[in-house]
Nucleic acid binder design. Structure first.
Ligand SMILES: [Zn+2]
Ligand SMILES: [Zn+2]
Ligand SMILES: [Zn+2]
Ligand SMILES: [Zn+2]
Lengths: 127, 127
DNA sequence: AATTATAATGCAAATCTTTGCAATTGCAAT
DNA sequence: ATTGCAATTGCAAAGATTTGCATTATAATT
């Protein structure tokens, strides 16, 4: 592993936008700043960053995976399948389960960006 | 929604193999039995089945999403990022958390096939 | 500074997936 | 049985992503 300019650009793009971006959105973002950068380089850099734990990747029901900067504190989400609204869940709501599973299965869990799908209060009423 | 032969074929393929299959593996499977079936039809049918809740789709770290028949009882998995081994987690290990979240966030959670990544006991020791 | 080893990148081809549109099919209502 | 509607499908084109291989860039070593 070495200092890669693609990695750096991607991390900056994710840091500025501070949101969940698809690989294609990320490619567009870095392409603005460095038009010569090849798509495959961006895709490979994303893979790298995810496996290094610097970036999270999740399916949030948008048809494509989304990437996000892995902050110091993990966080999680509820995604409403009715209206698409995304709710943030603090890690202390999830951490106890993870610890229980780690103990029961002798596992070290790395997942730090859980996404759960369902229906928000409003969308439950609207059937 | 109507009786679709593509849907039927896919459900049967998933039922026979009883495992996590990528969309491409599913396409290959149904293609054996109905070679004329178009790839786009298979992809669209899979979308349909997932949104109907008959099939689950998850990222299990294989580079492509995997599909599985949604059984009566939900189940979940731990996936080891070291050796790739997949452990099954019974729903009663997960259900309490879901219920807590449902109460706290006034949500009806639909996610029924959770996949958590980490390191198994052996792979933790192998650093 | 020169050498070496390895990681990162570009490029083109292959592969996979999505999309728009027209044709077909299944289903319900006459 | 016929009709009409809407869901499903096929087809071709566009788009997105992966892959193999040659080239370049980085960082450590001599
Ligand atoms: Zn997030
Ligand atoms: Zn909602
Ligand atoms: Zn499963
Ligand atoms: Zn392992």
């Amino acid at each position: 592993m070495r200092n890669s300019s693609a990695d750096q650009l991607i991390l900056e793009t994710l840091g500025v936008q501070k949101s969940h971006l698809t690989s294609h959105q990320i490619y567009e973002g870095v392409h603005l700043r460095l038009p010569a950068l090849n798509p495959s380089t961006v895709y490979r850099a994303l893979d790298r960053l995810v496996s290094q734990g610097k970036v999270t990747v999740s399916d949030m029901g948008l048809g494509a995976a989304v990437f996000e900067l892995a902050g110091e504190k993990p966080h999680h989400h509820l995604v409403c399948q009715g209206c698409g609204y995304i709710t943030m869940i603090a890690d202390d709501q999830i951490a106890p389960l993870m610890e229980t599973l780690e103990k029961n299965y002798h596992y070290k869990i790395k997942t730090n960006h859980l996404v759960l799908f369902g229906l928000c209060e409003q969308c439950q009423q609207n059937h």
